[in-house]
Design a protein around this nucleic acid. Structure first.
Lengths: 332, 332
DNA sequence: CTGTTAGCGCGTTCAG
DNA sequence: CTGAACGCGCTAACAG
């Protein structure tokens, strides 16, 4: 109701609007006494500058956008937590856009961000096709951009990622060292960076240990029917390498249906980022990404670009490390 | 780089700025032919109206804010998912603010939102003290507000909540029916609505079944030392009622340290909202809130207010229902 | 140190 | 149906 603006402040103080503006922005050319008076009244009237007017004039919004494929997912949740922390430190606002793995939506959102709504963008790409023209459009509009997790190799801009290849390799090795030779791979999508890296890590580990890679044992787009077929076959795998938590979840559900005991009948290892690890089923071995730090690093990289007024010029890649955790202490 | 604005469009089309503006906004007073020409060029030049200018003029931002105590928490994650879905349908943008249970931050954020940055606010209150002057300030600025989960009883504005009292009551009853008589309560904070409701539900169930409520068994601010003391005592409880997932987590960690077997030595039931339920430890019985729907309902209520141009006038309460899930099928 | 003036990019009168 | 002019609230350039 009472939309108090700078003009009203000026009138009440018998000052010019610009003086008030400068006082509020702590300009060096305003007397201490005046500043005090201005601030006093501003606080009293509960004055809040209109960000639209201010942004329009200053051509900066103190806002960043985070574009992610999904949010009901512990990894992205923790990333946001990290991003928000850094944004908060820098006094920035955070817009969230969820693409639901839909490339068209991703493109639409990028377009909405091309004109002053945000100063920079953090993005983890959707799994759908890889038309990256919307990314390029953003870069052309000189909006600083940082990729995390599901990165776009081609783009000349910073990227934060984890050692997906290596941890997939290690995870597979972990199963092999437990005596498993028949290991199946469950993925979700192969069209994004991490899908490829994880599958390759799995395959290389198998190959280097002289194990056969059965085509039937590789499900790139994990789904119930295929998992059920896989697990109910007489020569089913001894172990599952799940590239995403979702796949492990499906696996557990199918195993329950088929009365398969995990880990006795079937060992499962999965990428998973639950913070509530002790509440996890002890039969599940997990590979956990440093999600919170990924968020922090991505945000830091973006603010680095913003401060240097550089935009998308340098394309360093920061790689963080995941950790493997086995829970069942003394099973058997 | 190429910040294309409406003026440039007008020049290229040999039209007045106002005509272009009207064409883009599909005004009835513009000819079909002109509209087509304008849109053609706009698309071609990848024109995107500057939202700051537009918002300033229209006094509306097509943006809502979501203020939550934390995000590394499945409940809030799912709520955001629901909110984002409805926001997306309405073409709105979503700003996220995390207070980390800090009332001062909550107040600061509310103040930032008082002047045109957003058209409405969805909030779940921090657990700290209950100074709600910032809430009232928001309402005074006639910014529509909707509470969810951790509501503020006093505020005259819509509230979305779950049947916390009843499900805490039922959960406690569940433990009692399993033969437990010594049941401890672990909470986090009593200063918000759900803390009170859940504790009351627990107490009423105990009382109605004629069971003693031991003060030692009620830990309002769950923490490791107190849980450890509780569980290592010779007359420790037979069961734990955890009002939040975090408390259950602490409980599992302490139990592991003390070599207590769950559920044989200790039964645990907890409010918890993991979507990946099958990956949960089967010994944990959970009460799950319809988080996604809470988000959707809250957002719908807010958009209802926005459309009617009402702001905070009606204060209906929508109550959704949680579900209790026991996992261990045939333990014993 | 302070006031005056001129836009930022857009939507919206008011004329034609 | 279209154009010219004004102003949203604020900051920046130019005076004094």
């Amino acid at each position: 109701m009472k939309e108090v603006n700078i003009k009203q402040l000026a009138k009440q103080l018998n000052l010019a609007v610009s003086t008030v503006s400068r006082a509020l922005n702590d300009s060096y050319e305003i007397g201490a006494e005046t500043k005090k008076r201005v601030r006093e009244l501003a606080r009293q009237l509960n004055y809040q500058p209109n960000p639209n007017a201010s942004n329009l004039r200053k051509r900066s919004s103190k806002t960043i956008a985070v574009i992610i494929p999904e949010i009901a997912n512990n990894f992205f949740t923790l990333v946001i937590d990290g991003i928000e922390e850094i944004a908060q430190e820098n006094g920035f606002h955070v817009l969230i856009y969820i693409t639901h793995e839909n490339n068209a939506k991703e493109a639409a959102y990028c377009n909405l961000l091309r004109n002053g709504r945000v100063d920079g963008v953090l993005i983890s790409m959707s799994g759908e096709v890889n038309d990256i023209s919307h990314i390029n459009a953003l870069i052309d509009s000189s909006i600083p951009l940082v990729f995390f997790d599901r990165i776009c190799e081609e783009a000349k801009t910073p990227k934060i990622t984890t050692n997906d290849y290596q941890s997939a390799y290690d995870g597979t090795l972990h199963l092999i060292n437990k005596g498993c030779t028949q290991i199946a791979y469950l993925g979700i999508s192969q069209t994004h960076s991490i899908g490829k890296a994880r599958l390759t890590g799995y395959m290389d580990a198998m190959r280097n240990k002289g194990l056969e890679i059965k085509p039937d044992f590789i499900i790139k787009q994990s789904n119930y029917p295929q998992i059920e077929q896989l697990l109910s076959s007489p020569n089913r795998p001894q172990a599952i390498f799940a590239a995403v938590e979702q796949a492990a979840l499906q696996c557990y559900e199918v195993a329950a249906k088929l009365d398969l005991n995990i880990p006795n009948d079937l060992k499962v290892i999965s990428f998973s980022n639950l913070r509530t690890a002790p509440l996890l089923n002890p039969s599940l071995t997990t590979i956990t990404q440093p999600a919170f730090d990924i968020g922090r690093e991505a945000a830091k990289a973006l603010f680095g670009l913003l401060k240097k007024k550089f935009s998308c010029m340098e394309n360093e890649i920061i790689t963080l490390t995941s950790t493997l955790v086995e829970r069942e202490s003394t099973a058997g």
